[in-house]
């Protein structure tokens, strides 16, 4: 975009530009359903800075999307409730702010890309309308100016013939193109932080790579912070700087991306890596993880992973829950026996 010199986005009182972009501290979320209280997130903490990509990785139902929704402030309440912790944007705890202040943070400061663009885009409005809406409602632009900006955005995400396509409806785009529209929409107001919730899961493999590299490129150019949420170990390798592994609403391992692959420190991470089919191990039995993730209304005592763990001991089956042991700066694991897992002595 051409005129980034003027920052027109609304400012939030108390923001310190020196503070980290986003800090999540001891976040707790539960869902109150008829079947009982599901503890979706049980004290999650992490930090993202400008220009870096943090991947949050885990099975479906581990709480990674819920974390994203809690940060965005778009959790469905009821049934979802944030019961504790802080979400600090530039030092400001968003959970203590009014709905109106939080609304202005969305899209302006923190934007989100959703998994399935077909259902995430409104089927009855043109793509141009949905993009221009952001400029009209947040920047007070006219319809015509908004549409002009929409075309620029479509160009930015490399949609061919953007001028014509701007008046098409979402269902007229291919899956990959739709996800580009979704990306364009998230970038419209120059957010500082981008949350990408499984941005490529719904796409073909070849398209996945294109979308990921587009995302990485845009993130680098604009020095945004990015939270990449995924269940796919392959996707994160090229893009992420650091990885947090989530299991049953907790982070079980944190490490820079290289270390995770080279030397996992938690049995769950290790199992995830071993369940990726590898060409060099052709013909051998694939190591899938036994069993199922726990029911969040009845998380087992002790380490939540203990029923499926290869390294399980009696200590794992009783409280206290293993804390995140810091192994070295930047690497930690929530396993009592991390030494054994890593093969360290």
């Amino acid at each position: 975009m051409s005129d980034v010199s003027v920052d027109m986005s609304p400012s939030l009182a108390g923001v310190k530009m020196t503070a980290p972009l986003l800090e999540v501290e001891e976040l707790k979320v539960e869902f109150r359903t008829r079947a009982g209280i599901a503890k979706a997130i049980n004290g999650v903490s992490f930090e993202v800075n400008s220009g870096e990509t943090l991947a949050i990785l885990g099975e479906s139902g581990c709480g990674k999307s819920v974390t994203a929704q809690a940060i965005m402030g778009i959790l469905d309440t009821p049934p979802g409730y944030i019961t504790g912790g802080q979400i600090r944007y530039r030092g400001v705890d968003l959970l203590k702010r009014t709905d109106e202040e939080r609304r202005l943070v969305r899209a302006n400061k923190i934007a989100m890309i959703f998994q399935d663009a077909l259902s995430a885009l409104n089927p009855v409005f043109t793509v141009g309308f949905q993009l221009a809406e952001l400029f009209r409602k947040h920047r007070g632009m006219s319809r015509a100016d908004g549409k002009k900006r929409a075309v620029e955005l479509l160009d930015l995400v490399k949609i061919p013939a953007a001028r014509q396509r701007v008046s098409d409806f979402p269902h007229q785009f291919s899956g990959g193109m739709r996800q580009r529209v979704m990306i364009a929409m998230s970038l419209a107001l120059d957010p500082e932080l981008l949350i990408a919730d499984e941005p490529t899961t719904a796409l073909d493999v070849t398209v996945q790579a294109q979308i990921m590299s587009l995302l990485a490129e845009l993130q680098r150019e604009r020095q945004m912070g990015m939270i990449l949420i995924t269940h796919d170990m392959g996707v994160v390798a090229d893009v992420a700087d650091r990885i947090n592994i989530m299991y049953a609403g907790r982070i079980v391992e944190k490490a820079p991306v290289y270390d995770i692959y080279a030397k996992p420190s938690h049995p769950y991470t290790k199992a995830l890596l071993e369940s990726i089919p590898r060409v060099d191990l052709k013909g051998q039995q694939l190591n899938v993880i036994r069993g199922l993730p726990p029911n969040l209304t009845r998380i087992p005592a002790g380490c939540a992973f203990n029923p499926r763990c290869r390294y399980v001991r009696d200590a794992c089956k009783v409280d206290p829950i293993p804390p995140l042991y810091e192994i070295k700066p930047g690497i930690s694991s929530a396993c009592h026996f991390w030494k054994e897992v890593r093969g360290d002595d």
């Binding site: 885990g58 099975e59 479906s60 139902g61 493999v205 996945q208 269940h231 796919d232 170990m233 392959g234 996707v235 995830l272 369940s275 990726i276 089919p277 899938v288 993880i289 069993g291 199922l292 993730p293 029911n295």
Partner: peptide
């Protein structure tokens, strides 16, 4: 890309 996690388990553990 393969999807190691969900091939090993299921989306709907209860059923």
């Amino acid at each position: 890309m393969s999807d190691p996690v969900t091939t090993a388990t299921s989306d709907n553990p209860a059923v």
